[in-house]
């Protein structure tokens, strides 16, 4: 039989080994600081003319089915609300003019590249990464295909290649990270836009531009820069003439959903305090419940 001393020696060693082994995982978790000059895109829906050239450029840049430029002149597609999918990383949706105003509103939808992305926090194997310069990028070679990123995304952006039997990928806008992380490049959609709907620049500068526009053009915009605070802030910033919920952008909390889950995870597992406490508590109960008169204490009821 195991003696009392043996017991504590063995449990102690096991607990210590577990703590050391797992502490390595725990310490690797601090979120990397974001670059103060990180980039973003300001997208002013009131400028968009619905030409869909951004969709064309995006498809070409990302090797997605592109088709001829002329095929994008088909404006009937604008009438139905589309979502980005595995073959389209950005889409334009058209909303009718506000009462008493002329001209409809065209709204560009794509990954917002959160400042504190829930998808990155959710990914168990770091296939999704937030680059300090702004983009949230995806490395298919790391991915296990759990699709927890899709559950986590507060904007419901990532799409999946369900019909790929062996190498399905999570599909979403990359903010043209290959272009912008090389000096001087700008995202393909921003580059092709003929209406100057989008401005590419540092997020801080864009926020100033956005607020200046709202101040300088009273009546043109709602006083809200979508993405300034949404879900903890996003790299894409939107200006709109009406409530963003009317153009199907969700009313999400100003805190990243990952903030809460990370607090829970770290609250329980920081330094393995939680598991260690359960371990010690269970050991103590096991040892003390076994003492006393008659080693095997049976309940006498029933």
């Amino acid at each position: 039989m195991v003696t009392r001393r043996d017991f504590f020696k063995i449990t102690g060693t096991a607990a210590g080994t577990a703590a050391v082994a797992l502490a390595g995982v725990e310490t690797a978790q601090a979120r990397p600081a974001l670059d103060p000059d990180r980039m973003g895109v300001l997208c002013d829906f009131t400028f968009c003319i619905g030409c869909r050239r951004c969709e064309y450029a995006c498809a070409g840049e990302n090797g997605l089915p592109q088709g001829a430029l002329e095929s994008y002149d088909d404006k009937s597609l604008l009438e139905k609300t589309r979502r980005p999918d595995r073959q389209t990383f950005t889409v334009i949706n058209r909303y009718p003019a506000l009462a008493g105003q002329s001209g409809s509103l065209d709204v560009k939808v794509n990954c917002l590249h959160c400042e504190h992305p829930a998808c990155v926090s959710a990914c168990p194997v770091s296939a999704l990464v937030k680059n300090a310069r702004g983009p949230v990028t995806y490395d298919a070679s790391r991915c296990i295909g759990c699709r927890y990123c899709m559950v986590a995304c507060p904007f419901q952006i990532p799409a999946y290649e369900y019909n790929e039997p062996l190498t399905p990928r999570v599909m979403k806008c990359t903010l043209c990270s290959d272009r912008i992380l090389a000096e001087g490049g700008i995202p393909a959609c921003v580059e092709i836009c003929p209406a100057e709907t989008m401005v590419y620049g540092t997020r801080d500068a864009l926020l100033k531009v956005a607020h200046d526009r709202i101040r300088n053009h009273p009546g043109r915009y709602v006083d809200h820069v979508y993405g300034e605070y949404e879900a903890g802030g996003t790299s894409w910033l939107y200006l709109c003439d009406r409530s963003f919920q009317e153009v199907d952008l969700p009313a999400v909390a100003n805190q990243s959903p990952a903030e809460v889950t990370e607090a829970i995870q770290h609250g329980i597992f920081r330094g393995f305090t939680g598991p260690l406490m359960v371990f010690i508590l269970t050991s103590v109960i096991l040892k003390s419940a076994g003492k006393g008169p008659g080693q095997a204490r049976e309940d006498k009821h029933e």
């Binding site: 168990p124 194997v125 790391r142």
Partner: peptide, 29 residues
């Protein structure tokens, strides 16, 4: 069966990949 790339499941044990922020990593481990 549900994982799109089930053959990458061993990435849970590759140094540098595990993400301790992820509840799913914790569950899997």
């Amino acid at each position: 069966v549900d994982l799109g790339r089930y053959y990458n499941i061993w990435h849970y044990f590759v140094p540098g990949l595990p993400n301790g922020n992820s509840a799913l990593f914790e569950v899997g481990m």
